[in-house]
């Protein structure tokens, strides 16, 4: 691997030997970014694990130029110490320009620790990426919504390497690039740092509701429809839809975090997204603006939700939900 070419690295998260979608999403986005650059930019998939050679090879489908696979029993399950150690050694050896990681619970445990160890900058949960090319520098422009509202901030890390950013799962889509052939490097390290936290037990979470990331039709409830949450659940049930919500209702404890749409919740792409009484701050729309059909219902004709709605209805979301319930009852 040459050092002269700028390298754009992507951390490929695996759990129990299974590659997580966020790694494929970021790899696809990295390929797209590299292809926009005038100079050659090497896209490198970085996988840490144990006995995962085939899975490592399968990453080829998402268009990396190279795959770095570190095989070690200590990397079989995620732990911040061996992971940060392995990545630090790789980064010191190869000096990548940019390093992208998923903003999952694992990525958000690992990336800050790594940025401190490497004394470099880390942008949290970017929703848009671009490259800025100067004479001999290649800068990552990581844009994220800031402070809710409608403010975006574009953040650079101009003086330290690698320029790091996390991106939440679901922000980018997986793209297959069938023609590519990636160069595979299998790496082994001596004596990686040992885990310090002791694993005792694993329990699969009880699903309190359907997974909103997999639903075709979402009824999403905001402050303006809080009073008719139960009606919304009945209407959604009758229609085979799933109820989600804005951050406000999760903060109030009315809905659980699993059902929150937005930058700090989930990023989803249902066929139909009905936003009921949701104002539509960027923080929220960042998680749903890629839905195929968006129906916004709000009493305020200037609500930002209408900036992303294919159908914009000025009405009281609470009353609309009650009307939907009675119309459905009439049909039955």
């Amino acid at each position: 691997m040459t050092k002269q070419t700028h390298a754009l690295w992507v951390f490929i998260e695996q759990r129990s030997g299974l590659i997580q979608p966020v790694g494929k999403e970021l790899l696809s986005e990295a390929r797209r970014l590299a292809d926009t650059a005038d100079r050659p930019v090497n896209v490198v998939a970085v996988l840490l694990g144990h006995e995962m050679h085939e899975a490592a090879q399968s990453l080829e489908a998402y268009g990396p130029d190279e795959i770095l696979y570190v095989d070690d029993p200590r990397l079989e399950h995620y732990d911040v110490f061996p992971y940060a150690d392995a990545l630090t050694r790789l980064i010191k050896q190869y000096s990548p320009t940019i390093f992208l990681l998923g903003g999952s619970v694992i990525g958000r445990d690992l990336a800050p620790r790594l940025s401190m160890r490497l004394d470099t900058g880390l942008t949290a949960d970017a929703t848009h990426l671009a490259l800025q090319e100067d004479a001999d520098t290649l800068l990552l422009e990581a844009t994220r919504p800031a402070f809710g509202g409608n403010l975006y901030a574009t953040i650079l890390c101009p003086n330290t390497l690698p320029q790091m950013a996390t991106i939440r799962p679901g922000v980018f889509t997986e793209v297959h690039t069938p023609h590519t052939k990636a160069q595979m490097h299998v790496i082994q390290f001596e004596a990686l740092e040992a885990p310090k936290v002791v694993f005792l037990e694993r329990k699969v979470k009880q699903r309190s509701a359907q997974d909103i990331a997999k639903a075709n039709v979402i009824f999403s409830i905001g402050r303006g429809a809080k009073a008719s949450l139960n009606t919304a659940k009945q209407v959604a049930d009758a229609l085979g839809a799933t109820v989600a919500s804005s951050r406000a209702l999760v903060d109030e404890g009315v809905m659980v975090k699993d059902q929150q749409v937005g930058q700090t919740g989930k990023t989803i792409r249902p066929n139909i997204y009905v936003a009921l009484g949701i104002s539509g701050a960027v923080q929220h729309t960042a998680g749903m603006d890629k839905a195929e059909l968006i129906i916004g219902v709000n009493t305020d004709p200037n609500a930002p939700i209408f900036g992303v709605s294919n159908i914009s209805i000025v009405a009281d979301a609470h009353a609309v939900l009650e009307a939907m319930a009675s119309q459905l009852n009439a049909i039955e």
Binding site: D119, N150, Y152, T154, I155, C157
Partner: peptide, 11 residues
């Protein structure tokens, strides 16, 4: 600080 805000904008 290693990170810099290049610009902020509202849509």
């Amino acid at each position: 600080s290693p990170t810099r805000v290049k610009r902020t904008y509202t849509k």
